[in-house]
Computed example of a mutant assay.
Amino acid sequence: MSKAVQEAAGSLDLPAQAADTVYCDINGERYRSEEWGMFAMRSHQALRSLQYETFCGSIGDVGAAFGAVAMVVAAQSFARGYARGPRALVMGGSDSGTRGAMFLHDPQSERRA
């Protein structure tokens, strides 16, 4: 996961452009929490906070749809004005070991400033 996030952040000026909000697929499985801990130690410069958002407590474990759901939630937080800041990180993985990450940026953030 650290490698996926570092690759996604490749063009960002960290820590200045770190993620304000993190959406991750932690769902109660032990290995996902352990992976978060390892990621946080290795790649904390990509984050403004170690706090993260997950969906298992609200809409449930969305499985393979996680990336799409998290991307829409992040985009809606930008559009509706309740995002913590102009950048969101969506990070997730599959049971097979594949990991992915993407940074999203609020296109309206420069106009609001």
Results as ranks from 00 to 15, higher is better:
31 Y>A: 15
21 T>P: 05
56 C>G: 09
97 G>W: 09
37 G>V: 00
62 V>F: 11
7 E>C: 10
99 R>W: 10
2 S>M: 06
26 I>R: 13
99 R>G: 11
6 Q>I: 04
81 G>K: 09
25 D>Y: 00
66 F>D: 02
14 L>T: 05
62 V>S: 02
78 F>P: 00
42 R>L: 13
52 Y>K: 01
36 W>N: 00
13 D>Y: 11
112 R>M: 11
33 S>F: 12
101 A>C: 12
91 M>Y: 10
70 A>Q: 05
31 Y>S: 13
82 Y>R: 06
33 S>V: 01
85 G>L: 07
15 P>A: 08
1 M>S: 12
109 S>V: 09
70 A>M: 09
97 G>Q: 02
105 H>T: 15
29 E>I: 01
107 P>F: 02
44 H>L: 06
36 W>D: 00
41 M>P: 01
112 R>N: 09
61 D>A: 13
65 A>L: 15
75 A>T: 02
29 E>T: 00
18 A>T: 01
85 G>I: 01
82 Y>Q: 06
55 F>P: 04
92 G>N: 10
70 A>E: 02
24 C>S: 09
32 R>E: 10
57 G>F: 10
109 S>I: 07
18 A>S: 04
86 P>W: 00
85 G>F: 02
34 E>W: 08
43 S>Y: 03
111 R>Q: 12
41 M>N: 12
80 R>T: 04
9 A>D: 04
9 A>I: 11
8 A>F: 08
41 M>R: 11
82 Y>P: 03
113 A>N: 12
96 S>P: 00
112 R>G: 09
88 A>T: 09
61 D>Y: 12
39 F>D: 13
59 I>R: 15
33 S>C: 05
70 A>I: 03
61 D>V: 09
77 S>G: 13
91 M>Q: 10
27 N>S: 08
89 L>R: 07
100 G>E: 09
103 F>G: 03
34 E>N: 11
99 R>K: 10
92 G>D: 08
71 M>Y: 05
97 G>D: 06
25 D>K: 05
23 Y>G: 01
108 Q>C: 04
49 S>A: 07
65 A>D: 08
105 H>F: 07
92 G>F: 07
104 L>Y: 05
19 A>W: 12
41 M>G: 15
66 F>A: 01
62 V>Q: 06
105 H>D: 15
60 G>Y: 01
77 S>I: 01
70 A>Y: 05
24 C>I: 00
10 G>Q: 14
99 R>L: 10
105 H>K: 08
59 I>Q: 07
89 L>D: 04
35 E>V: 13
77 S>M: 07
41 M>F: 06
3 K>L: 13
2 S>D: 11
68 A>Q: 15
79 A>P: 12
99 R>E: 12
71 M>R: 14
64 A>V: 10
107 P>K: 08
59 I>H: 13
3 K>C: 04
67 G>I: 01
26 I>N: 15
78 F>W: 06
113 A>K: 05
28 G>S: 05
56 C>Y: 15
69 V>P: 01
99 R>V: 15
86 P>K: 04
44 H>P: 00
14 L>C: 12
40 A>V: 08
40 A>C: 13
59 I>P: 06
86 P>I: 00
39 F>T: 02
76 Q>V: 04
80 R>K: 14
87 R>V: 11
12 L>R: 02
78 F>S: 09
90 V>P: 00
90 V>D: 06
34 E>A: 10
85 G>V: 03
